[in-house]
Design a protein around this nucleic acid. Sequence first.
DNA 1: ACTATAATTCGAAATATGTCGAACTATAAA
DNA 2: TTTATAGTTCGACATATTTCGAATTATAGT
Lengths: 117, 117
Amino acid sequence: MSNYKTIETEKIEAEQLVDIFKALANGHRLKIYNILTTCCTPGTSCASDEVFSCCVGDLDSQLNIAASTLSHHLKELHRAGLIHMRRDGKQVFCSVNTQAMQQLQNIFSSNLVGVKS
Amino acid sequence: MSNYKTIETEKIEAEQLVDIFKALANGHRLKIYNILTTCCTPGTSCASDEVFSCCVGDLDSQLNIAASTLSHHLKELHRAGLIHMRRDGKQVFCSVNTQAMQQLQNIFSSNLVGVKS
DNA sequence: ACTATAATTCGAAATATGTCGAACTATAAA
DNA sequence: TTTATAGTTCGACATATTTCGAATTATAGT
């Protein structure tokens, strides 16, 4: 747990920002993130019986990659602090970290990359 | 010239977005982009006699990498459509593509990654 | 305890990226 | 036209990333 970024400070560290961009710099991961943004709107709980659920298996069915590869990508997104993952029984449910998304918006709004040097 | 992205459409293609994140997913390139954002505010022309100029040589002096490496990184940022490059005599001046920046902000504002599938 | 389902970890292989120095091109000045 | 300055291109090498299948862990049901 201590290995994973939280993105809670106002200004994001330059290195952390690189990690975030790195996490999004892949077609599969961007698609995953995209699916999660359109599925898990803030406040919505992602139960598996909803149309747009987002447990790992559901993502798997939309991606045409090996389960192990998907797992790897989810880990990357999680490590960057872009998504949440919680286990519920046999399944692991994923959702976007809306707070992180907010801060990314801020970064690109004023003059970009307002990072602590 | 036809090889370089322009980022003029409202919605950004998913692949293009991956290229943009890829371009920013590197410490040196992010630093370059950062320098350019704090130097070339919209409308400002970046003459070499200003304090914050941004010809390739000026960037070089701030980065501690080989000139050839810098050139490579600038090409990546340019290919992604994130910066402009124009030759003026012996020097090549770089500046951010503010339009691209704007669109990145939009992407992260509504529900992220509003990409054409 | 056994079986099935969901997901992760591991190790290997293929591909991509970052980096440098040497050689090259472009422009301006002597 | 020779020389100096500013950048780029090329080829090589080291490192990082992506991907898979096989083996493993976690949980729930029989």
